[in-house]
Design a binder for these strands. Structure first.
Lengths: 180, 180
DNA sequence: AATTAATGCTATGGGGCCTAATTATATGGG
DNA sequence: CCCATATAATTAGGCCCCATAGCATTAATT
């Protein structure tokens, strides 16, 4: 999370400019603005999801399971696969699943053929939960983007991809750890 | 934090479109792309800061204190003001300060005139810590934005502001709680 | 003086995340 | 066939961030 109620302005940076040759004020201000908008969006949707009894992390697990079931007819995913796709360690995924299973949103089955493995699937209740969340969830996203014209959406998408590509082509990418 | 290694693509949404009238695929994909890029940036810089022994939350406290000291000559801030500016509760700020004080980066003084209040200031070590972080920190940000031309930066900034304004003018803004 | 408000703190609890160790199972080479 | 190694999932323990609720202290209001 990133939050500062009042972002630094140009004046705040002025005394630092002569001191730090690497400081590019416009870059930093853009960077902060980006993080602030992203954090605010995330917080807003986290609050919305919390009202439905799920956290961001759990919601992502539900989304991954739904996608898997739609893509290949209900075969389910293993905790390992879930952890890889969600970008967390297996231990973290165990914790997320624990809560989801306690709440009856997912089920764990053992894999025939490899008894080390577990197969995770959405329960009917899990699907219902997503069904309850989706309409308003999508409506909020649509409303948020509503003021952007088609060309603005394309422009934003292009710029986001540009920053993203830069992040991965330089040494700025997320830590190698869980997100590799 | 938001993370999905592989974002949903158009095909993933196709079966949902007839089911949810509020689903606007291009909005949702843009939304996810935004969150992913923001999360990756945040994670990358969190990792960088962690190498310097501070978390995002603590770093923001240090930034707020530095700004305050530069703006009005070292008067410092109270925990209440810090909490307000950082968007957390006073209790949370107490915890952040506890760690920062333990590490010797901040000091707490009592306020003459209002004995309920505390005044928080950066220690010399706190300033040194920021001095150690800044050069590379700014360089990374500059590098990240390096590929964006001036007009692209302006465009991105404009679009970010547009989304931000939309968020605050609709009911999508962050929870009233701590961030009001 | 008595009420109300503000400040900072503690206690408690949850979520998310990690590393390290453990248990169970597979697999491949000798 | 057996042992070493690898893989899967979990548990244990810990840290950080964050919130709510309650408390003591001090100030402000009336």
């Amino acid at each position: 999370m990133f939050y500062m109620k009042e972002l630094p302005n140009e004046e705040d940076f002025r005394p630092l400019v002569p001191e730090y040759s690497s400081l590019d004020t416009s870059s930093v201000m853009l960077f902060y603005l980006f993080l602030q908008v992203g954090s605010d969006m995330l917080t807003a949707f986290e609050t919305y999801l919390a009202n439905h009894g799920v956290s961001q992390g759990r919601f992502i697990v539900l989304l991954l399971l739904l996608r898997s079931q739609m893509r290949n007819n209900g075969s389910g995913l293993s905790p390992s696969e879930l952890a890889g796709q969600a970008g967390v360690t297996r231990a973290t995924m165990t914790g997320l699943m624990k809560g989801l299973q306690r709440d009856g949103l997912i089920e764990r089955f053992s894999h025939d053929g490899d008894r080390r493995k577990v197969i995770v699937r959405l329960t009917p209740k899990g699907k219902e939960s997503l069904n309850a969340i989706f309409p308003d969830y999508y409506a909020r996203i649509a409303e948020l983007m509503n003021d952007l014209e088609d060309d603005e959406r394309e422009g934003l998408s292009r710029l986001l991809h540009k920053v993203k590509d830069k992040m991965y082509s330089s040494k700025l990418a997320p830590a190698a750890g869980a997100r590799g």
